[in-house]
Design a binder for these strands. Structure first.
Length: 633
RNA sequence: GGUCUCGUAGUUCAACGGAUAGAAUAAGCGUUUCCUAAACGUUUGAUCCAGGUUCGAUUCCUGGCGAGACCA
C-alpha cells in the first residue's frame, strides 16, 4: 500500500504540487496506537513545497488520496500527520493473501548470494559459558534470518585448538591426573565427566599450580633473593618496586600485577608448557597424540552442548590448520606496497590516513600474529566457496578495532568482497554481581545453565501445564523446548550491540516479555484450532472488522518488513520485538471475543483464519530465533 | 594518553529525526457458568548535563560527566 501511494504521488506530483518531487519527501510511518488510522504520511516535508500551513497541506493530500487511491476509506489530518484509514475489504484481502502463501514474508530460497556466518569459535581448553551462549544464539539466529530473506548460508565456526592454552591443560593432565588401578589416567570414559569439563578441570589445575609457584618466586624476590633470575627481570622488578613509592593505590596494584606476571613467566611449569608448544609445532608424535586425544574429548563434549542448544554447523575451521596462513599474502602485499617493512624485519600497515594507527601484520622473526591468520583465513574461505559473496563474523565487541583493521587490509589487498564482510559485534553479558571472571569462579557454565532452565521449566509445567496424554519422553522434550526457548529469547531480545545484564532469576521467567509467553500463545492457538477442526477456506467479507481484528491483520502484514529489518540490521532482537507485539495484540483479542464458540459462522471462520495466521507467524518467527513452538504446554 | 561503544521509569529492555517517550518487572485492585488465567484489564514512575543543527532531537553534531572495551 505504501508503495502504491508513493508511486501514485510521484506520478501526480506535477498536477498536485505544480512540480516534480523527490521520493524522500514521502515519508510513511506506522500510525500511533491511540489515534485512528492504519498508515501515516508525514505532512511536514510538503509544507515548504506548498508554502502553506501543515493543516492546509494535509487537507490537500487528504482530498487527493481519498479520491485517487483504491483501498483507502478516508483520511484524518492531525498535527501535521495524515492518517490514512484503509477499508476493511483491503485488510481482508491482505489476510487472504497471507493465507494463500504459507511462506508469506520469506524470499525465494537461494535468490541471494551465499553468505558465510561464523559463530561460537570456542577454545578447546575450557567448557562453553554464558558469553558463548549469546554468541551462538545470535549467530545461529542471524544465519536463519539471512536464509529467510533469500541468502544461501554457510554456518561455520573456527575452533581455537592450538596454542599455549591447550598445552596448559595437556601438561596439567600429564602431571596431576591420578592413575587408577588399571594404570589409566582420567578420561571422560572412566570418570563419566564430559570431555570439555575434564579438560577444563586440568586447565584450572594448571593455573593453581602456576599461582603457587609464582607466589614462591615473588616471596623470594621480596626477600632479595634473585638467584636463577635473569638480570633484566631482576632489574625490572626492582624498578617497579621503586616506582611503587609515593604512588596511588591503583598504580601500585598495576605494578603488583606486572611483577606477578614476571614471576609467572619464571615458573618452571609455564616454561614446561611453552616447551610443549614448541614440541607441538615440531609435530612431536607424543605431544601430538596427547593433543588429538584431549581435543577429541572436548569436541565430544561440545557436540553434546550444541545438540542441547539446537545449533549446527556446515563447515568447521581449525586454527591448527589455519595458523600459518596469511604469511604469503602479507609478503605479496609487501611487494605491492600495501605493507611496509621496518628495519627489524617486521611488517606493518600504515592506517593513519584512515584515522587508525599502524598495525603489525608479521613479527620480525617472521611469525604470524592474529591479524596475519585472519587475513589468510578469510582469503582461504573464498577459495573453499567460490560463490561466496560475504561473511558475517559473530565476535564480541572487544574485537571491534581488530575487525575494522582486518576489513580495511583486505580491501587494500584488492579483495572487493571485503566490502561484504560484517563484524556482528555484540556486547558483553554481565551478571548482577558484575563481570564474569574465570579467576573468581563467577563464570556461568553453559551446560549448567541449560540444565537449570530446563529444570525450572519442568517444575512450572508440572504445576500449570496441560500435559494429559503426553508420554514421559514427550514431556521431557517439552521441558527442554520451554527452558531453552526461554533462555534463547532472553538473550536475543536485547539489541546485540548492547551490553546486557543476565539476571538468573529473570532468565527463567515465564511471564511478560519472555519466550514461554510466545510459546504459550502458540500452544493455545494450536489447541484452539484443533478443537474447532479448522479448515482454511475463502474469507468472506460479510461483517465489519473489529478494531482488535484489524490491529492483528495490520501487525501480521508487517512481518515481512520486520524480517527485512532484522536481516539488514543483523538483529534478531527486531524480530523478537515484532513477535512480542503480535502476541500481545492477539491475547487482547482472544480475551475479548469468542472464537470457536462464536455463533455467526462467517465471523467464526474469519477469527479462526486470523488465529491460524497468527499461529503460523509466531511459529515462523520463533523458528528464525531458534526457538521451538510446542503445540501444547 | 589515543580510538571506539554505551548512558531512557527503582530494575531489565523498546522507540527509520516525528504526534502525549512504549513494554516488562515489582506492588495494589479486578476478570474463569465461555475456546489453555504461562492470559487479560486497571492504577504509579524515566530521556546524564550544557550548547548547536532542524518545522520537530532519546535519536544527528560539539563540549563535559559517568560506565565499558581496545590500542600502546
Amino acid at each position: 500500500m505504501e508503495l502504491h501511494i508513493r508511486q501514485a504521488l510521484l506520478k501526480a506530483a506535477p498536477e498536485l504540487f505544480g512540480c516534480e518531487i523527490t521520493e524522500n519527501l514521502i515519508q510513511f510511518q506506522q500510525t500511533r496506537k491511540d489515534v485512528e488510522g492504519d498508515l501515516t504520511l508525514v505532512v511536514f516535508p510538503f509544507v515548504k513545497l506548498l508554502r502553506c500551513s501543515p493543516q492546509a497541506a494535509g487537507d490537500k493530500l487528504k482530498t487527493w488520496i481519498e479520491a485517487n487511491v483504491p483501498g483507502v476509506s478516508h483520511c484524518i489530518v492531525i498535527n501535521g500527520f495524515l492518517n490514512i484509514v484503509l477499508t476493511d475489504a483491503y485488510w481482508l484481502e491482505q489476510l487472504s493473501q497471507m493465507q494463500a502463501q504459507p511462506h508469506y514474508g520469506f524470499a525465494q530460497a537461494d535468490s541471494k548470494p551465499t553468505v558465510m556466518v561464523e559463530y561460537a569459535s570456542p577454545n578447546t581448553n575450557k567448557p562453553l559459558h554464558l558469553g558463548h551462549l549469546r554468541n551462538i544464539f545470535l549467530g545461529a539466529a542471524v544465519a536463519e534470518i539471512l536464509q529467510a530473506v533469500g541468502h544461501k548460508v554457510v554456518r561455520t565456526q573456527v575452533i581455537n585448538d592450538r596454542g599455549i592454552h591447550i598445552c596448559k591443560s595437556m601438561l596439567a593432565w600429564e602431571k596431576f591426573s591420578p592413575v587408577n588401578a588399571r594404570g589409566e589416567r582420567e578420561t571422560p570414559a572412566n570418570t563419566g565427566l564430559k570431555g570439555d569439563k575434564l579438560v577444563g578441570k586440568y586447565y584450572v589445575e594448571f593455573d593453581r599450580a602456576l599461582q603457587i609457584e609464582a607466589k614462591e618466586i615473588m616471596a623470594q624476590w621480596q626477600s632479595g633473593n634473585f638467584s636463577d633470575t635473569p638480570e633484566a627481570i631482576q632489574e625490572a622488578v626492582l624498578n617497579f618496586e621503586q616506582a611503587k613509592q609515593d604512588k596511588d593505590e591503583k598504580a601500585q596494584a598495576a605494578i603488583d600485577d606486572k611483577i606477578k606476571e614476571l614471576a609467572k613467566n619464571q615458573t618452571a611449569i609455564l616454561q614446561e608448557a611453552k616447551h610443549m608448544l614448541v614440541r607441538w609445532e615440531a609435530r612431536d608424535p607424543q605431544v601430538y597424540l596427547l593433543w588429538t586425544t584431549m581435543n577429541g574429548w572436548v569436541y565430544a563434549g561440545f557436540d553434546q552442548t550444541y545438540a542441547q542448544m539446537g545449533v549446527t554447523f556446515d563447515k568447521l575451521y581449525y586454527e591448527s590448520d589455519t595458523f600459518l596462513l596469511g604469511k604469503d599474502q602479507v609478503m605479496e602485499g609487501l611487494k605491492d606496497g600495501v605493507f611496509y617493512q621496518k628495519t627489524d624485519g617486521s611488517v606493518w600497515i600504515d592506517l593513519t590516513a584512515e584515522g587508525l594507527d599502524e598495525k603489525l601484520v608479521l613479527r620480525s622473526d617472521g611469525t604470524a600474529v592474529y591479524m596475519t591468520q585472519d587475513i589468510g583465513t578469510a582469503i582461504d574461505r573464498f577459495k573453499d566457496y567460490p560463490d561466496l559473496h560475504g561473511m558475517v563474523y559473530t565476535v564480541g565487541n572487544e574485537q571491534d578495532y581488530h575487525f575494522k583493521v582486518l576489513f580495511l587490509i583486505l580491501q587494500k589487498l584488492g579483495y572487493t568482497w571485503a566490502n561484504n564482510c560484517f563484524h556482528l559485534s555484540y556486547g558483553m553479558v554481565d551478571l548482577p554481581s558484575g563481570k564474569m571472571k574465570s579467576r573468581e569462579g563467577t563464570v556461568v557454565d553453559a551446560d549448567d545453565l541449560m540444565a537449570e532452565v530446563i529444570e525450572k521449566a519442568n517444575a512450572m509445567t508440572q504445576e500449570r501445564g496441560h500435559l494429559e496424554g503426553l508420554s514421559e519422553a514427550e514431556r521431557q522434550a517439552l521441558y527442554t523446548q520451554i527452558g531453552i526457548g526461554g533462555l534463547k529469547y532472553y538473550l536475543l531480545k536485547v539489541d546485540p550491540k548492547k551490553r546486557m545484564l543476565f539476571n538468573p532469576e529473570e532468565s527463567i521467567d515465564l511471564t511478560g516479555n519472555t519466550g514461554p509467553f510466545l510459546q504459550y500463545a502458540h500452544a493455545r492457538i494450536s489447541t484452539l484450532l484443533e478443537k474447532a477442526a479448522y479448515q482454511p477456506s475463502a474469507i468472506g467479507a460479510t461483517t465489519a472488522l473489529r478494531p482488535e481484528e484489524k490491529e492483528i491483520i495490520k501487525q501480521l502484514s508487517y512481518f515481512e518488513s520486520a524480517l527485512q529489518e532484522a536481516a539488514k540490521g543483523y538483529s534478531p532482537a527486531l524480530l523478537a520485538n515484532y513477535t512480542y507485539e503480535l502476541v500481545k495484540l492477539y491475547n487482547t483479542f482472544y480475551q475479548s471475543v469468542k472464537i470457536v464458540i462464536e455463533p455467526d459462522e462467517a465471523v467464526r471462520q474469519l477469527r479462526l483464519a486470523l488465529s491460524a495466521e497468527v499461529r503460523q507467524t509466531i511459529a515462523k518467527a520463533l523458528a528464525l530465533l531458534g526457538i521451538a513452538a510446542p503445540a501444547r504446554m
